Simulated scan of single mutants.
Amino acid sequence: MHIYAFGSVCRGEIDLGSDIDMLAIISEQSNNINPSDYSIYSYERIKELWEQGNPFAWHLHLESKLVFSKEGSNYLQDLGCPNKYTNGDADCKKFYEIFHSACNSLQESSLSQVFDLSTIFLAIRNFSTCYSLAKLEYPDFSRHSSLNLDEFSISIQDQQYRILEAARILSTRGVGPNLTDVQISIAINSIPEIDLWMKSLINIKRS
């Protein structure tokens, strides 16, 4: 068994919206590992992700710290560098579709507005992470990856971005005050600009 910390705690970016991401790599099912506390993977699956050049493999390669090793080894380090990530365009389009689906849900009903805004923030973040890994020199796996793409960063108003972020934290961790109708309206008004931004980046090719 190998246990790793990864994500914001390894970047030193802890705030009220952060959690501590933990990975458990196991060879067989264990009742001692709580799925609510750990991302649980088999050794075979981790190796597959490395071979695929999957973004999660790159995330672990660049931003994880060994916490426990039953065998005294560092499994992820021993795997070396993951293969090149080649699925960037397809993954960006997938997250654009998730964004588009959440926008449609907002138009159809007001019953899940905070959840839909949370999904939009998730789509923006993952879209940006995949874009940075595929197109830019330095990948960004942080919650604010969409703000860290240099000239390709998202350009919505800071207030709009913070409301979307608050919706994500509220939906996933139950932290923070409920969003007001005014805040929800402000966030919804950012959708056309987000749509244009995502579509423009999908069409940008590395020079």
Rank of each mutant, 00 (worst) to 15 (best):
I98C: 06
L111E: 11
S101H: 14
N178H: 12
S207N: 08
I25K: 00
C10L: 02
T129K: 09
A134P: 04
D78V: 14
A123T: 01
R45G: 04
N83T: 08
G88Q: 03
Y41K: 11
R206W: 01
I25T: 07
K65W: 00
C10N: 07
N32W: 12
V114G: 01
N74Q: 06
R206V: 09
Q159P: 00
G53D: 06
T129D: 09
E51Q: 14
V114N: 00
S109K: 04
S101N: 14
Y43W: 04
A123V: 04
I184A: 11
S185P: 02
S30N: 06
I98F: 13
S190T: 09
S128C: 03
R168N: 07
E13L: 10
R11T: 06
C130V: 02
G12A: 10
D19G: 01
D116H: 08
Q113A: 14
D181V: 05
S118P: 03
K205W: 05
N189P: 04
L106E: 01
W58P: 14
S8H: 06
I3N: 02
H144M: 10
E193N: 09
E137G: 05
Y38N: 08
V9Q: 10
R162L: 15
Y138G: 00
E63N: 14
D158G: 09
N189F: 03
I194K: 02
A134N: 15
S101M: 08
L147C: 01
P192F: 05
S145R: 02
E151P: 04
V182E: 15
S101I: 15
Y96W: 12
H59F: 11
N148G: 11
E44L: 09
K93G: 07
W58Y: 11
C103F: 01
D89I: 12
Y138K: 15
S39H: 11
L60Q: 11
I186G: 00
S8A: 12
A5C: 03
I120G: 04
E151F: 12
S185V: 02
S142E: 05
P192L: 03
L149G: 04
P177F: 13
S8T: 08
F127N: 01
F68E: 06
I40N: 08
S8I: 05
D150V: 15
E71P: 02
K94V: 03
Y4S: 13
T86M: 14
Q159R: 15
C103H: 07
K205Y: 07
V67H: 08
N31P: 00
Q160M: 04
G72R: 08
L106S: 05
E13N: 05
A57F: 13
A134R: 07
S153V: 08
Y85F: 15
D37P: 00
S109F: 08
L122Y: 05
E165C: 01
D78K: 15
I204H: 01
A24V: 06
